[in-house]
Design a protein around this nucleic acid. Structure first.
Lengths: 139, 139
DNA sequence: TCTAGAACCTGTAGTGACTACAGATTCAAG
DNA sequence: CTTGAATCTGTAGTCACTACAGGTTCTAGA
């Protein structure tokens, strides 16, 4: 054990995980990924462990976790974590997402009703512009 | 006409519009706000016109328009616009918002079901971590 | 074995929409 | 006339990347 298993270059890792090469290097730079082994010439070589970690990060990003959240989660995983700790981070993030949804829905409604008033022709008056200029209406 | 009306400093404008002083200067730097008059000592002095324009920008931001969208809208307003032009920008933006809502809702659902499986105690196993590590499940 | 070119390297700068300083100057009130 | 609040310019930091420039290494084919 130790050096068993195929070691892949950054390009292969990129293809396998769907994470951009530049992004992988960026993750390493900010300390989210550990420094990999190198060839004699200095090219990066990754093992299965690092692949799994990168997939973890990619999944986390897909779920909208910030890199800082993911760093915390990884540290927890490395240092021995409890389900409660992880759940706290997840629920906080869930709150965040729900707040964003509410905001966007309000926004959608306002824009929809405003745009619906548009004649849409070549008339040089527009309810959208009016709304943006209107002094202190809409609560 | 011309120089009639109270001219306010950047601090007053900031309080009146709710836009940060630094942000106002930033808008000027990127060409979104015109350069205002100055006192002899070099302090900025704003008139009603500039106040209205800043309120326009703030409203637009609240509605989620990008600064670039707003620049386009302002140029249209300045240069003579048609309702159709403005509606196009608005509808494109509305599409954008709707896509974001769909994404966030999917995210919310996934996180909710995952977090719901958490025992939440001091148990060192966690469904959230499992999900993030799980190889290639969830479609 | 040589060579072409793909892949990789480091380091820096750009994105969007601000925010946060440092260090200097100006203004308004007492 | 003095104090201190407000303002000035210019630069750097934020987040999560992306996009170079200019150089080196690796690999496959001749």
């Amino acid at each position: 054990m130790g050096t068993i298993g195929a070691r892949s270059t950054i390009g292969v890792l990129s293809r396998e995980t769907g994470v951009n090469v530049e992004t992988i290097r960026y993750y390493e730079r900010i300390g989210l990924l550990p420094e990999p082994a190198r060839t004699e010439g200095g090219h990066r070589l990754y093992n299965e462990d690092q692949l799994r970690r990168l997939v973890f990060i990619r999944r986390g990003r897909e779920l909208g976790f910030s890199l800082e959240d993911l760093k915390t989660l990884i540290d927890l995983v490395d240092g021995g974590y409890t389900c409660g700790e992880v759940r706290d981070i997840t629920l906080a993030h869930l709150d965040d997402i729900r707040r964003k949804i509410v905001d966007l829905r309000r926004l959608e409604k306002t824009l929809k009703t405003t745009a619906a008033q548009c004649a849409g022709g070549i008339i040089p008056e527009c309810p959208v512009i009016d709304t943006l200029f209107k002094p202190f209406c809409e609560k």
